[in-house]
Amino acid sequence: MAIKKFMYLNRRAPYGTVYALESLEVVLIAAAFDQDVSLAFMDDGVYQLVEGQKTDGIGMKNFSKTFHALGDYDINQFFVSAESLEERGLSVDDLMPLVWEDEDDDWAEKPSIKVVPNAELTKIMSEQDVCLSF
């Protein structure tokens, strides 16, 4: 069966609701299915990738560290809306430095996060076969 393009659309901040955590749990499982996986972060979803999350004070697990593991599972297409970042006074420097190793390029470390304008996100989205929203 042909490989399908799956997009995981994340528009909610972590911790206030469970969507971000349980979306990440789906992505971890998706890694085992050899499909073409990409993650889109828009609106408050960009806060899922912000560096320096510390959850000791709320008694919840800091699951942001799990994003670092995704590169090892060939999940390395993180598309972040440039407009959503800018609206929130954030830039790519505020996000976790997620990387993956490119086996076709002598295992060079490459960034997984790509900040793209909504116009490009539109194009990427239009190429998807399945879009899972959380």
Binding site: M42, N118, L121, T122, K123, M125, S126
Partner: peptide, 10 residues
């Protein structure tokens, strides 16, 4: 957000 990322055929 939908309108920000909708293409011409959607």
């Amino acid at each position: 957000s939908c309108l920000n990322t909708i293409d011409d055929s959607s």
